[in-house]
Write a protein that binds this DNA or RNA. Sequence first.
DNA 1: TTATATTATTGCAATATTACGATTAATAGT
DNA 2: ACTATTAATCGTAATATTGCAATAATATAA
Lengths: 110, 110
Amino acid sequence: MGLAKTEMFTDTQNQIALFAKVFGHPARVAILQKLFEIDTCYCGDLVNEIGLAQPTISQHLKELKHLGLIKGNVEGTSVCYCINKENWFKMKEVMFQFLNQDIPKGDTCC
Amino acid sequence: MGLAKTEMFTDTQNQIALFAKVFGHPARVAILQKLFEIDTCYCGDLVNEIGLAQPTISQHLKELKHLGLIKGNVEGTSVCYCINKENWFKMKEVMFQFLNQDIPKGDTCC
DNA sequence: TTATATTATTGCAATATTACGATTAATAGT
DNA sequence: ACTATTAATCGTAATATTGCAATAATATAA
């Protein structure tokens, strides 16, 4: 199949999975870290920084953009990418809710 | 390829990606949420709770176990699963470091 | 207008993931 | 020993992901 049965899960569960999935590749992690690190953020810079081919980087950027985590601004022939701050905070809230779940006190198991 | 070029990224970047990847499927999110919710946590309970077949749940559990996020305890014919608290906290530290990156102050871009 | 620079898109090949039926393994109860 | 219960594993089909060469699209510069 290779296809997740999203219909049997809650919206929140699917949303967490979607955000997590996009962080599930080191190239996208590296891209985001670079975007946090620098102000000016041309696509070509990322291609140089990370060792992957331009089409590959472009594809990863597309996925990050599709989830709303980054924005792209056309500047002449190049495109300046940056973090979409508003959506990054929204994502953080969703992920924190998940990661910060309280661990059950009882030690009945394990 | 379908194969991430992990060798060109830092250990931290790869680790973040590995953790995120395991959260990148709603079934595993649901499993973890259930494990946080209840104390006793037999595998069969998860099969009933989530609508997926037993081999599918078993496979997802295996991945969570492989990353050290859960523990499995054999109890007769059933297996009791639960959160590996120590590793969950370690994972949280890594993910928080990533998610809490400071957003650049300047608005030179976008 | 042609050349150059930069990014996006297309089309693949290789590999990974998801899901489940069938089976196996292990244990408990009779 | 036989049976039932539970979970893991195997095998396989369907789909997704990753990566890149080739190409297209867009804008700038000469």
